[in-house]
């Protein structure tokens, strides 16, 4: 992917929006998979911000990444409602299972699926409720088998 061209297109589309930084960062991450450090100067110039301000926003928000992820991102809910139905056991299991895998594991604090936990989100769109370690292994096996 031509990151510079993608970035130029995104900045052109958003530079005049009030409070454009978060929408720009979301689009960059959606297009590239993360926010490459080399995009920061151009974002800063386009939005009339300092590089420090842009970097500060990227590093502040849990959602934004500065490094590429594995082929898939699996988020396991670690918040109270899921804890109440075995979320911690599941999260621990996930850490062990995904050690060394090219599926990235991230904690997430609530997916709004609190009546049917433990909850898991895959690649920001696919949702799984009432997750157990056995179901988790089956899910990961499917993800790892995908090419």
């Amino acid at each position: 992917m031509d990151i510079a061209a993608t970035l130029a297109r995104i900045l052109d589309a958003h530079r005049d929006r009030p409070g454009a930084l978060l929408p720009v960062l979301h689009e960059v991450q959606n297009a590239v998979g993360f926010i490459p450090p080399e995009t920061v100067p151009a974002i800063a110039t386009a939005l009339n911000l300092s590089r420090a301000e842009v970097h500060g926003v990227i590093s502040y928000y849990h959602h934004f990444r500065q490094e590429p992820t594995g082929r898939h991102v699996v988020r396991v809910c670690c918040a109270e409602a899921c804890q109440a139905v075995g979320g911690e056991v599941l999260a621990e299991h996930a850490r062990t299972r995904l050690a060394g895998s090219d599926v990235t594991l991230e904690p997430v604090y609530c997916l709004g699926l609190c009546a049917c936990g433990p909850a898991v989100q895959v690649d920001e769109t696919q949702l799984h409720a009432a997750m157990t370690p056995a179901k988790f292994d089956a899910l990961v096996a499917r993800l790892e088998a995908e090419r």
């Binding site: 454009a20 930084l21 979301h26 939005l47 911000l49 301000e53 604090y109």
Partner: peptide, 19 residues
């Protein structure tokens, strides 16, 4: 962008403004 404290109204406004 995944910040719990942005549910606080003034933090939310900061976030909307791009900070």
């Amino acid at each position: 962008a995944g910040s719990y404290v942005c549910g606080e109204e003034t933090a939310l406004l900061e976030s909307l403004e791009g900070r």
